[in-house]
Computed example of a mutant assay.
Amino acid sequence: MRRNAIIFHGTGANPGVAWYPWLGRRLTERGYTVEIPHYPGLNAEPIATFLPKVLANHAIDENTVLVGHSGGAALLLAVLEHIGTTVSQAVLVAGYSTRPNTGEEPVLQPDYDWAAITAHAGDLYFINSRQDPYGCDDKQGRAMFERLGGTQIIRDDGHFGDYGQPYETFPLLDRLIH
């Protein structure tokens, strides 16, 4: 069976930082076709104009695993709402569905069709930290979990990779993705 994975980086990041290259290699070794696109407009361009570009760039089907970190996880909510298929898995790392701090968050939609998101996600995981410096914390994960179901995993691991927090591997993700 053909399997593919798309890993969306966080706000201000790129495909070469944190655990993204490591996870890409691990999944490739396991037979996945992996995309780790670079989206410099993530959380800078309004989601209404940004999302159509993202959807046009990727073939997403029932054999797809979506992984998003921080702003990339917030992007996954919009992707899941607007695709016409159900993906195998979606993993939101340090994700959020409302403003996590006082900064602008153009990646967020004004509201979400939670039923459509649920319908388009097979296994759904939320991984958040109680100690996230940006507010993408366990409370944000809980708010999404309560609306969507799935599995919530809470750690004490900061932002799971950031400029001051090298996070070059993420074995939990490798174990969760089947």
Rank of each mutant, 00 (worst) to 15 (best):
Y39I: 14
Y163L: 10
A73W: 02
M1E: 12
L80G: 02
E81G: 02
D156E: 10
G41L: 11
W19D: 12
G84A: 09
F145Q: 07
L124I: 04
P15S: 10
G68T: 07
P52E: 08
A119C: 03
L76S: 02
H178Q: 14
D111H: 13
A115L: 06
G10K: 14
E168M: 10
M144Y: 10
V87N: 06
L55K: 02
V87M: 09
A78E: 01
F145E: 03
E105A: 14
D156I: 01
R155V: 05
G135M: 04
P106A: 08
I47V: 15
I60M: 04
R2V: 12
G158A: 06
I60N: 00
V79L: 10
I36Q: 13
L124A: 01
L176V: 13
Q109C: 05
V87C: 06
L76C: 01
A44M: 06
G103Y: 12
P106C: 07
L124G: 01
W114P: 00
G72A: 13
A143C: 06
I127K: 04
Y134A: 12
L66F: 00
R30W: 07
D123T: 15
K53C: 04
L66A: 03
A5F: 11
Y32S: 00
H82E: 07
G150H: 01
Q131V: 15
Y125M: 07
I153W: 05
G12Y: 07
A5H: 09
Q131H: 13
A59H: 11
L55G: 01
E81H: 00
A73T: 07
T64G: 01
P106L: 07
L148K: 00
A13S: 15
P110F: 05
P110Q: 06
G103N: 14
N101K: 09
A94M: 09
G150M: 00
D162F: 11
N14S: 15
T98C: 09
Q89C: 11
E168R: 12
C136F: 11
V17D: 12
F160I: 10
A13W: 09
H69Q: 12
M144N: 11
L75C: 02
G149D: 02
P171H: 08
G161H: 03
D138W: 07
R2M: 13
I83Q: 03
M144Q: 14
F8N: 06
